[in-house]
Design a protein around this nucleic acid. Structure first.
Lengths: 155, 155
DNA sequence: CCTTATGCAACAAGCAAAGTTACAAACTCT
DNA sequence: AGAGTTTGTAACTTTGCTTGTTGCATAAGG
């Protein structure tokens, strides 16, 4: 896989959960995401530790939201999935002796630090409710796709 | 995801080349970067296609700069190495049917597009001469490391 | 020609995310 | 208490990418 899809997956599932009555099992969530239950549990563990979701074992168990979508930002979710690296480009060497390489790393680090700051600020200002609202407007435009809570993604 | 170090490596080598008399062989460059000659040739191929460097076979051959550092920006080099993906985070699925996932991808894509724009603008305004100047000022502060053109990086 | 170089293709190594299997632990319902 | 569900977790496999390596063809110089 080329990208780390954890953030995207978790956003996806959280919004689905908000529209789901009662607890959703890992199995059901896995079908929504077209993945498998163990990956779901693995990634949801981070969200549980941060108190965004709750899990219950046994009959009728599964996952439930413990916060409203208005109270969760992209930044919250990003942190809960372990703050994976944002950038795919980096220094060839972390502690170079070569002063040229130090200068190169410095120039790149400056640029990336600025971009990271922008990105995280942006994340902090987008709530999951914003995304859900975007979903609602898409549903108005494409009502035919409305009933795809478990939309498989074949790509 | 692990980092793509091509941009960093090429910046490093271009600045070294500017301070090198005559042609530099892939072997010599590989020693500077603590890597091997084939990787050097592979990555330099992109720079050659864009006309930033020139290569010569046979005795006394090797690589030479065909532009001054003032005339090359980070953006130029980034493009010449093939515009590798900047971000390590992406959608779980490129063409989702699910409207929720479409909304999620949209929100993320917006944020990343903004960050990418900032980053590339920043790249476009930094020339290799700027980095070389930073190197010079580092050398003033740490003259002991001045003679490390082939500084191995052990990390 | 013989040496020195690049050019290129093919393959192995290394790494991280994702997928899978297996099983223990906890909970519910009868 | 016992049967059936569901999470929790560890271990392993698969996949996709960059990097490393080998081998050989090609071209330039002496």
């Amino acid at each position: 896989m080329r990208y780390d899809g954890r953030l995207s997956r978790m956003l996806h599932v959280l919004i689905h959960m908000a529209r789901h009555e009662g607890a959703a099992t890992s199995e059901l969530i896995a079908q929504m995401l077209n993945t498998n239950p163990v990956v779901v549990r693995r990634t949801m563990a981070g969200l549980r530790e941060q108190g965004y979701v709750h899990s219950e074992k046994g009959h009728g168990g599964g996952w439930t939201l413990s916060r409203r979508l208005e109270e969760m930002t992209l930044l919250d979710v990003y942190r809960a999935v372990g703050e994976p690296p944002l950038f795919a480009i980096g220094p060839a060497c972390d502690r170079p002796e070569c002063l040229v390489e130090q200068a190169v790393n410095g120039a790149l680090a400056d640029a990336f630090a600025e971009a990271e700051k922008l990105l995280l600020e942006r994340f902090a200002h987008v709530t999951l409710a914003d995304i859900a609202a975007d979903f609602d407007s898409r549903m108005v435009r494409h009502p035919a796709l409305a009933g795809h809570p478990g939309s498989a993604c074949s790509s």
